[in-house]
Every structure is written in C-alpha cells, then in structure tokens.
Nucleic acid binder design. Sequence first.
DNA 1: GTCTATAGAAAGATAGAC
DNA 2: GTCTATCTTTCTATAGAC
Lengths: 192, 192
Amino acid sequence: MPYPKDHAEKSRGKILASAYKFFVWKGFDATSIDEIMQDCQMTRGAFYWHFQSKTQLYREAIVHAALQSRLAGDKPQDVSEQAWLGELLDAYLDKDTSAKTEWPCPLAFFVSDVTHREPDVRHAYTKAFSAMNAHIHGHANRYAECREGTVLAVTAMLIGAVAITRTIDDDLLRGRLLDACRELAAGQLGLE
Amino acid sequence: MPYPKDHAEKSRGKILASAYKFFVWKGFDATSIDEIMQDCQMTRGAFYWHFQSKTQLYREAIVHAALQSRLAGDKPQDVSEQAWLGELLDAYLDKDTSAKTEWPCPLAFFVSDVTHREPDVRHAYTKAFSAMNAHIHGHANRYAECREGTVLAVTAMLIGAVAITRTIDDDLLRGRLLDACRELAAGQLGLE
DNA sequence: GTCTATAGAAAGATAGAC
DNA sequence: GTCTATCTTTCTATAGAC
C-alpha cells in the first residue's frame, strides 16, 4: 500500500495547523488556500480532498484551537486552584506567549472576523466562548463564591484586551493595558 | 458652473458614510468599492477622485467615526457627570442602539480586522483607543479619584463585550454578557 | 491521497473622455 | 467631478489523471 494508514490524518492535522498560523498572522480573507498548501508542501488538489471549503477549514480550526487551550486541560495536582487560575491568567495576558503559542485564543484573535462569517462558524465561536466561561467559572467556584456575571465580564475584558493589544501600535500602551486587565481580573476572581 | 462649490465635500461625506455602513455590515474585505459607489449612485471613477485607495478610505472612516462618538461631544449642562457617564455606558452596551447608530464604535466593530491592516490604519485605531480612554478618564476624574489603569481595563471590557456580542449567535447569552459588563463597569467607575 | 490544468468570478486601480 | 472601458491580478472550486 502506497500510504501508511494514518497518513490522511497527519496531512489533515498539518493543514489545520498551518491554516491557523496564517489566519492568526494575516486574517481569514487575506489567507489563500494556495499559501496554506504550499506551506504544507502540497497543492490545492489535496486540500479539497480533506476539506469541503475554506469556511469549513476555518470553523474546524477554531474548534480545534479552543480545545487546545490550557483552560480546557487538567490542573496539575500539586498546584492550588487559585495558583493555577492565576497562571492561566498571566499566560493569557502575556503579550509574548499569547501570540507565540501554536494555538492562540481564537476568541480574541478572530472576534470581529467571525462576525461576518457563515452561521456555523459563528456557532462554533459561541460554543467556544461558553466553554471558556464555564472553565473559568468551574475553577473559581472551587475556592470561592463566584457569580456567572462576574466571569462573563472578566472574559469579555480578557478577550478585548488581547484583541486590542494585537491591534494597537504603541508598545507602552499595550503593557499598561495588559497590566491593568490582569489586576482587575485577579481582583474579580479572588486571586489576590 | 456645473457643480455647486460644496458638491465635492458632500460627495465625499456620502462615500464615507456609505462605506462605513458596509464595513460594519460586511467587514472591510467583503466590501467592494463598486457596491459602496452604487449605494451612493456614483461609479468607481468618482471614488478614485476623492480617495487614493480603499485603505485610505478605511482609515478616514475610522477616524471620522471615532469623532462622531457621543463620548467626544459635550455633556449637557443640566446633567451630572455621573449621570452622563452612566448614560453613555448604557448606550454603548445597548445591543439595539449600538448597532443601529450611524457610526458604531470602530474600536469594537473592527478590532481584529484592523490588526491585519496597514500601519497607518492601526495608528488611527490606536489614537482612537487612547482618545476613548482619555474621555472616560476625564469624566470620571471630575467626581472621584480614578486611576488610568481602571479606565483601561473598563474600556477593554466594553470593547470586548460589544465585539463579542456581535459575533455570538445566542441572544440570551448576549443579554447576560452585556448586563454583567454594565454592572462591573459602573462599579469600577463609581456610578452606583 | 495528491497532482496538474482550468473554469469562472470578482476586485483594485488606472486612463482618458466629457 | 463623474463616467466608461480596461488592465491585471488573485482566488475559490472543480475535473480528471495517476
């Protein structure tokens, strides 16, 4: 047999990861299927064997990225709930790691991009947003009373902060913004 | 003379307003110069007499929209600072008015769209973001001590909330999100 | 599974008439 | 100032070979 049995799965993952990289870097519209496939050392023909359309790729990439979030993963046993949530918060608002991780948060990076996409893409975004809130709420509730509204407001601030950070061109302002949001978030989540 | 002397200025303003409407509705990339000009009952030729490029149009539209913000305007004399800021906050987070006003906030509507644009567009965005913070800070400082960081965090939350509201497809969740952000913002700005 | 070739549509920008 | 005509590029998606 010419192809190993996990070959298709590997190629698919490669396309997904490469596509996400380009979407983060250039945005959905400015990214062409050609450049994604060139990056994967394949051609357009292979793409349409794995995916039905560019939109489907986008939706799947968003879902996949949301699942890669450390927030969706397990807390190490030797770390307290508060310390863990604090660590995730710091990582989320760190302007160096946030953009350099392989799967940056799609909620922040694509927020006003997904607005204009097909309903199923927006639905995937909505699910991911709900999941982020549920995860934070789950952690926070293990050490203190925490209302859903508090989490929603904090999440909106975090997503807004990261999205704005990527957009503005003033590095000092970026730093002050992220610091301020970290402080308010920590306060609201009882991490001080 | 075939054209009244303010004709050029009127046409320009018409293009700007129409373009903004399309950018809000479909996003920058999905909006073509053709459809903007059709909406203005003119053709592409006229566009390139008024503007150098689609990017320049975008930048000017963002600057213009930021100046249209009620936050940039004057407070009515018969309203207290706190009441005024509270009113602006409510309007900003009202999901009906926020999208129906003629010049919705570019900071929220285009945040992850501007990320991938030319440096001068991002610079215009940065200026507008700073201006929004300065305006809020200015108001808040007239009735209480208010740190810059507090305003930055609140602004990020407001922008995030409006951007997310536009993107998610769950109307109940939208409502809870906006309510929660309104409450936290009011608390942070001393409006209770 | 992946390739090449191509159909088919659209958009940004320019040139020159009026 | 605005129009029409056109150049040029780019992109999604499909068809069929291997």
